[in-house]
Each structure stands twice: as structure tokens, then as C-alpha cells.
């Protein structure tokens, strides 16, 4: 077992992000799956997704997913490699940086869509 500040935070954030992602997965499955109930039902559900707090929240979900993914790889490295436990602290900071980069990429792609009057740049893929 590892002890110390980083390990505790990594564990806590992994569980918090995990529960949040599961909650979103359930909502997302119901909202996207509602296509089978017809266009009107889907349209009514999708209206909620167009609300600003929801669309901003989605960027947070992307960040939570990215943290959970990269910290999950750190856990796999600790469990299945000879060097994982020794470098778990460094691996955690690497996971944080990777998650932040993924969230920034999501933000970069979505700011012009969310606030077209403020962010007028074109993303590198032009959409």
C-alpha cells in the first residue's frame, strides 16, 4: 500500500469522478436511446441538452472522464508493472496533466460553439 497526500487525493478523485461518470452514463443512455421512442420524445429530451449550464457541464464531464481514464492507467501500472508503485506520485501528476490537456482541447473546440460572439476563432479542423 502507498500512503501520503497524493495517493489519497488520487483515490478520492477516482471514486468521485467514477460516480459522476456513471450518473452521466445513465442520463446519456436514456437521452440518446430515446431516439427509439420517436422524434418528438428525442427532441424534448434534447432541448435540455441545449441549455447553457448543461453544455458547460459537459466540458466538466469530459474532464472527469479524462481524469478517471488516465488515473485508471496509473492504477493498472501500479498493479501490473514492477515500477508502477515506485513512481505512483509522478504518474499521478502525469495523469493530472493529461486530463487537463484533454479538457483544454474540449474547451478549445467548444468555446466558439457556445459563445460565437466572443470566441470567433476557427478551430484547426474548421468546425
Amino acid at each position: 500500500m502507498y500512503k501520503g497526500r497524493e495517493g489519497q487525493w488520487a483515490f478520492f478523485l477516482h471514486r468521485l469522478s467514477g460516480v459522476a461518470i456513471l450518473l452521466y452514463l445513465i442520463l446519456h443512455t436514456v437521452s440518446i436511446g430515446s431516439t427509439m421512442l420517436g422524434e418528438e420524445v428525442y427532441g424534448a429530451v434534447h432541448k435540455l441538452y441545449e441549455l447553457m449550464p448543461f453544455r458547460l457541464g459537459l466540458i466538466g464531464v469530459a474532464g472527469a472522464v479524462a481524469y478517471h481514464a488516465f488515473n485508471g492507467l496509473r492504477i493498472v501500472a501500479m498493479d501490473f508493472t514492477s515500477w508502477g508503485v515506485k513512481y505512483q506520485r509522478q504518474l499521478w501528476y502525469a495523469a493530472l496533466v493529461m486530463a487537463a490537456l484533454f479538457m483544454l482541447l474540449t474547451l478549445y473546440a467548444n468555446l466558439p460553439r457556445l459563445f460565437p460572439d466572443i470566441f470567433t476563432y476557427k478551430t484547426i479542423w474548421g468546425r
Partner: peptide, 22 residues
């Protein structure tokens, strides 16, 4: 990790989430 991050990249970064109508 691979499935989800690519799913997010494809549907939330490379394309506009609001474009996902019926």
C-alpha cells in the same frame, strides 16, 4: 480508456454536440 476518449473526441470535440439532433 480508448473507447471512451475516442468517443468523446469524435462526438464532442471534432463535431458539435448540439448538432446531434434526431
Amino acid at each position: 480508456v480508448l473507447l471512451t476518449l475516442f468517443h468523446l473526441f469524435k462526438n464532442h470535440i471534432a463535431t458539435d454536440e448540439a448538432g446531434w439532433d434526431y
